[in-house]
Amino acid sequence: MIVGERKPLSEIMELLSGAQKVLVAGCGTCVTVCFAGGEKEVGILASELRMKSKLDDHPMEVEEATVQRQCEWEYIDPLLERLDEYDVVLSLACGIGVQAMNERFSGVVTLPGINTTSLSLPVEQGIWEERCQACGDCLLGTTFGICPIARCSKQLLNGPCGGSQEGVCEVDSDTPCVWQLIWDRAIEFDQVKRLLDIQSPKNWSLSRDGGPRKIVREDLQLESE
């Protein structure tokens, strides 16, 4: 899922400086399940903002709204009718949601209340580990389902570097060496030989290196021009 983290209150207060009436807008999808920007977090932040601004002697009027998905027009359009009441919208959605709001509603600016951090797996309660970098050219099929792009500090494609120490990454001792994990899994399936093929350089043009990416599915478009 897309994972984010709430910005510190001080940073949010700075972003909102000068605003009198604010709408805190949450999203009911990814950021809800990672506890960063769902209905509850919207309530907490709105309450914090009301209290903080009151204590700072510039009380803000803060209201709350959470939509099912802030990254789809259908879900955010119903917000339009109440938007002109606000000086600013503070979105607790991911970066996509914030931009969707700004693209859809020209009259009011939407500011980010969280930092969108990663595509992560909630490995246990309260811990999210990065698992995907959306590189655009999935190689999980050659690495026994474990991604060296997202999980190797150096994004190596042909085995571990010299810094792999007893299964731990030299960059961060909390990070397992992903090539150790891949190797162990290859042994488990008795297919170590498959790892001995040299991988040629990855096609990064399918990732961010090729510029902003765009998918066009003509079969899904309502009308073609």
Binding site: K40, I44, S47, M51
Partner: peptide
């Protein structure tokens, strides 16, 4: 009891 209720009380 969750943080939201506690904040509301202080508010």
């Amino acid at each position: 009891v969750d943080p939201l209720e506690m904040l509301r009380a202080f508010e």
